[in-house]
């Protein structure tokens, strides 16, 4: 696993389109910061990746094609010194020992199906059967944080706030929460520099450059972005689906009048709620009043 080509090969040998079919509410992911949450960051990322990858003799399309490329994966394994040979209808890689490689995950039905899927993919596409290990969550966490697993550990991350940094900081500083043991001062410097930038879009571009730098080391094998399903009674108002599943509960209320209930589910995201708008306006006004009063104070001085 210390060999970058091996890491890349394992990452490429998983058919993420098939994975998504297995998990149903997932979308395939090849980057670290998931898509669908920060549209502006995605714009910046596409721009930076296009320029940066062009410099490296590649392209954005090629980058996005990393969803699955078994041919390239086998080629990379061979380059790394572990030739993958044709054997019968499948493949075999006798020189790669799995004695110290496994997929470790915390016991849960969903993690099990994911681990078995990945195991089957590697077996089919590389001819390598990686053993699976599972353990209870509280046993798994310290092991993960100590980087005591061998090969692959299962990890998921949910953003804490609406900024891509909530994902990227996972590999920031030597004591990071990335649980891979990877730390690179260059990556830290790139993040620091980005965070010292005032202009939002320029900052995003710098963060994207850092993400590309990190992803090209292939320290993680991204699989997919899950969707969240939720049910809401039509009389609960002021509650909207949003990418962070962060809900401002102070705006949520119960509507007694059935005529005003949410029946138009399709347009829940675009329809504006008059009561919430009113409350929002009131909050914005207190802010503006505060700014005004401060300005007045200054003027008086």
């Amino acid at each position: 696993m210390d060999n970058q080509k091996v890491r890349e090969a394992f990452a490429l040998a998983i058919d993420r389109d098939d994975y998504v079919k297995l998990r149903r509410t997932y979308k395939p992911l090849v980057d670290f910061v998931p898509f669908g949450i920060y549209p502006k960051y995605e714009e910046a990322r596409d721009k930076v990746y296009t320029a940066e990858l062009k410099k490296q003799g590649s392209s954005l399309d090629e980058w996005k094609a990393r969803k699955f490329n078994a041919e390239k994966a086998r080629q990379l394994m061979t380059e790394a010194g572990f030739p993958v040979q044709k054997s019968g209808s499948g493949w075999s890689c006798p020189s790669f020992s799995v004695d110290h490689v496994s997929i470790t995950y915390n016991t849960a039905e969903s993690n099990k199906s994911t681990a078995e899927f990945v195991q089957a993919q590697w077996k089919q596409n590389l001819g390598i059967t990686v053993p699976l290990k599972n353990m209870e969550f509280k046993t798994f966490l310290p092991l993960l944080n100590r980087v005591d697993y061998e090969g692959f550990g299962r990890r998921g991350w949910v953003g804490d706030y609406m900024d891509p940094y909530t994902f990227l900081y996972l590999f920031y500083s030597p004591q990071n929460s990335g649980a891979t043991g990877w730390w690179d001062p260059k990556f830290d410097r790139m993040l620091d520099e980005a965070n010292n930038t005032v202009d939002e879009q320029v900052r995003y571009e710098k963060l994207a450059a850092a993400e590309l730098y990190m992803m090209q080391k292939q320290i993680v094998v991204p699989l997919g972005v899950p969707g969240t399903s939720w049910l809401k009674k039509p009389y609960v108002k002021g509650l909207y689906p949003n990418p962070g599943t962060l809900h401002p509960w102070k705006f949520v209320y119960i509507e007694r009048d059935p005529a005003k209930w949410d029946t138009d589910v399709e347009n829940l995201l675009t329809v504006k709620d008059p009561i919430v708008q009113q409350q929002l306006a009131a909050i914005v006004k207190t802010q503006q009043d505060f700014v005004k009063s401060k300005a007045n104070e200054k003027a008086a001085e």
Partner: peptide
């Protein structure tokens, strides 16, 4: 004796 503690989470705590 059981591994893990009540404050363990996916975020690593500073020492």
């Amino acid at each position: 004796v059981a591994p893990g503690t009540f404050y363990d989470s996916e975020k690593k705590l500073p020492p």
